[in-house]
Design a protein around this nucleic acid. Sequence first.
DNA 1: GTTGGGATAGAACGAACGTTCGATAGCCTG
DNA 2: CAGGCTATCGAACGTTCGTTCTATCCCAAC
Lengths: 220, 220
Amino acid sequence: MTATLQRRPAAGNKLDHILSCATRIFCEKGYEGASIRDLSRRSGVSLAGLYYYFESKEELLYLIQKHCFTTLLARLEEELGSAPRDPEARLRLLIRNHLGYFLQNPEAMKVLAHEADSLTPPYARQVADIKRSYYRICRSILDDLKRQRKLRRLNTRLAVMSLYGMMNWIYTWYKPRLDPDADALADHMSDLFLGGILAGASGSARWPRSRNGRRRALAA
Amino acid sequence: MTATLQRRPAAGNKLDHILSCATRIFCEKGYEGASIRDLSRRSGVSLAGLYYYFESKEELLYLIQKHCFTTLLARLEEELGSAPRDPEARLRLLIRNHLGYFLQNPEAMKVLAHEADSLTPPYARQVADIKRSYYRICRSILDDLKRQRKLRRLNTRLAVMSLYGMMNWIYTWYKPRLDPDADALADHMSDLFLGGILAGASGSARWPRSRNGRRRALAA
DNA sequence: GTTGGGATAGAACGAACGTTCGATAGCCTG
DNA sequence: CAGGCTATCGAACGTTCGTTCTATCCCAAC
């Protein structure tokens, strides 16, 4: 269950190669649909030889997810450390960081987003912990923004989830030759999200709601 | 490849039962991870008996996806038929329709969103056609809105994808006891999205963009 | 030059997979 | 009651799966 990375110091390069092949295969065929034999063919390592580097197929997915989320989180924390205190600026930075990493590693991105609950408890917990940290940073920025701008009616949980939905769904439609690059996309989504948060969720609604009378509770 | 539904007129009930069991199983274990033996156990039909009702596991997924997307699209077209011409109202209606159906059929929703490209060409094409119709309705509403409000800088493709991302990601986080119901959620996302579109994408930017100077093209 | 362990692979294991075969009920029609 | 059609099943087929067993190779240390 512990990371294979530490066990065999000299083997880092080859494990990295295997992990990158595995990422590509999981991306193409999904975790369940991918086979160790696929990985053997793609990586050039024999079927049995692979098991020198990891203990099971599931550990493979775990190592990929853990590495990516850890990197994503570390980059964000580093950037936020030397960033202004203004919540809007920090949120823009988070979005930029997220999309920057995702569009730079599109295959890993799909594996993170698509195989989010393919891991079983022993592995799943550790990944979930990192994800929770990442999620909480966004939520606390939004709580700050809510206080600063007095957005009484803002449900920050819904807002966070909506934002992550926008961002994580990208792997299903993004075409590098057709769509804007990561920075432009980050600006687009930042504007969309912040515009919506700041315009719609403050005091009175600026735009009419649904035409029928079913106005349920919107507040947090 | 043609729908099994028409071949055996009297068998509708049992096929429906099988499809609903299959939906639940695909939802729980994913398409690849689910086995026909799981379906046999859950539905109470013998392994061989199942194949009287469909031709392959893939046709099963196809039947589920086709039925759901067709229903979703039909409902939307019916509602839009007797709706006002105002693009904003029509967009709110689309969001309400989408979330209403999704939260009423959460297992099917996950199968639609998560197994979006588990089908291979013969089946995949037919589902893709229906999805394209559905997507185009949203896009044309947004094009109308863009014209009406003179939103020169709005990239409607990105906007549509962002909106669908927000909505389709719900299956990963929605908790019925914790989160607002479908109508309230639809209002929330409508406000967020419309607020963002109308505030951020018109003439000059109302809020500052990223702190560094990399201001790439945001326009369509 | 022997030795010992890290690194590798061929072959096999048992289990599970999607699918099919052949048989058997039940039932309507003639 | 004979014949055919619908609906169903137990058993099996051939394949692929994740994983492991065992043997080998290479190279540094003694």
